[in-house]
Design a protein around this nucleic acid. Sequence first.
DNA 1: GAGTTTGAAACT
DNA 2: CAGTTTCAAACTC
Length: 696
Amino acid sequence: MGSSDPKLSSEYNARTSEDVTISSAGVIRGIEEVDEGNGWIVVGGEETDARDTISSSYSHMVESEFREYQALGNQQDSMTENVEEVGQTCASNQSSYFHIGPVSEEAQNNLEDFQHHGMDRRSLQLEDNHYTVISRPTQSPSNSGGSKSPLDIPCTPIKGKETEKNQPLYPQSRNDTVNITKPSGIGLHLNSIIYVLQAGSGAIVHTKSAQTFNFSIQGMKSASTINSHLSDASKSSAVFSPVENVSACTDDSGPKIHDSAAVNSVTSLPSVIAESSNGPVANQSAQGNKRVYTNINTNDISEELNSNPKKKRQAYLKRSSDSSDGDGCKRCHCRKSKCLKLYCDCFAAGLYCAGSCACQGCYNRPQYEDKVIESRKQIESRNPLAFAPKIVKHVTETPASSPGEDETLLTPSSARHKRGCNCKKSMCLKKYCECYHKSNVGCSDGCRCEGCKNVHGRKGEYSLEKDILSKEGTSETTDGTNGGSSHSELTPQTPAVQFKKDVREGSLRPRRCFQSPESGVISVTPNAMTSLSPINLDDNTMISEAALEDLDVVSSQEELFLSNVETPGEFSSVRHRTGKKGIPRGTNHYSPVGSLSLLRSPGTPMAQSSASRQLKVIDLDGETSNTMQDDTPDILKDSHAPHNAVKSSSPNKKRVSPPRALRHGPGLSLNGLRTGRKFILKAIPSSAGSKRGAPQ
DNA sequence: GAGTTTGAAACT
DNA sequence: CAGTTTCAAACTC
């Protein structure tokens, strides 16, 4: 079974309409996992258990389940677990949570019949294998349950607004194809795909609505290259590369980049729905859409737990052994915060809560989008970087090493928590520690921990390391080419877990790599964008200035990424600033992707309180272009230097993207950056030193 | 299983 | 901005 047998994996069919939407503009929607090994694609991302239940039997089982599901009625709550899962799959969303399995012979026949009834047929190509995704117009609620198609799943639409919003973002044309590099072995989580897309092609993943994942592949001119690179580099990467229509999503009739809410909101939506659902089951029940999970969070359960401490405890114990799902998604158990505070891991990670969460009274749901936005807005008003990646990571690798790269090449010792921990009693040895266990990084000078024994690196050691790196990097910085470059990477906390997991499981390489303008391979996680800042595109000076104002110095690649991502009218790359700190105001830091906000931040309190340092903007042509103040914390500066393009293992050197290309604004091609001069922001410690202040 | 500890986040 | 409270997770018994 699975694509290990090409015959078996030759063709897949989707179980329902709207399983996967692949527009001519290269938009893929709904794919959660692609499992070459088992030969299935999970659309929308049911969790592992459901996958286990469903994936192996493919169409036959799907069909039988469907029949049974139909027989039972999709509004019943007492279905068998398998059926429930299928029901969840259906009820949760019209557009996601569908599984695609290899077509059985019987199903294939039915499929052919079904196609004669007006179904679209789309193609997903997993390299040499060909997968067929069946798609047809969105079902209406009235007919969703009565279809006679074996592939038809009774999907109850989400009510009202949600229903409307779940409509496909993109026109669905026929015969659109998308190449999906075959992942190896274990399925690839959506998050991983998202990252690849985002990093590799400037793709934006955003939530159109409650349960819709949209892959908007932009800047596709580079996508094929990226894909190729990734594919070659690692067979475990999943990269979408449209065979045709590689144009960016600029077609008026085509993809709309943003969720309207995201566009209209200062605060972005969660970037990923950890697991879609229709929200509190109480609502779903009323609609006959109740999703049943073994550990589902419901209002009912919440109330019960609230009133019954024992059950509450049991829930906790249950979660203790199940604190994250198989995909690395957080499973929160919030009781009072309604999952709208940073206490909530899901919320903090820019995720909607999942059905696997055990939260109570959860509002971190797509249908409570407004609340989510409002809450995020509020939190960001306190701390603009609240949703920024917490981990700043140095990754040592060479472009050539990419193919065989695995997680071991990551250097946790050089990754640091952006704000640091504040452990007093745990000595950074327990999971309380933000650095040690929650982020698996060492402590740094930014930490205020006491008695640090972080095995990944103790507080105080990092600065020494930086010094060493700085010296080593000095001679390397100006040549712009090197084989031993390291890359900076911003890693969001939660997604990072997933990412590592993917890597560990061979489904994804440790980072998203794509062609560097300077011939290197760069590594940028999509969430790097979170703390990346739109660059003033007007002149070099402003770029440098902007970079200096950022907590995270933007690499050229990152800027390229931004430039690819950004589309005029979507979110401005130009800030309006008020105040000395350059605090973003107005509507400039929009993001369609939750935490992937292009928010320019004035910096964390740590940054703000840090001692000023002078930076020299060094033109690699040999000139020192500018000198200015920098109040960026060392740790942040260090880790964001793109070490490949301009080899700079020195923590004090910052690459500023070639302004020439940037001057051309959004949509510039890769080529636009190739000839750009390289600028280095060289940190010159002030006489007062660079001791940071407390981040909080 | 219940209670305690911990530290981040939120609040004042 | 510092101190306090709240919160959820981690931990212990």
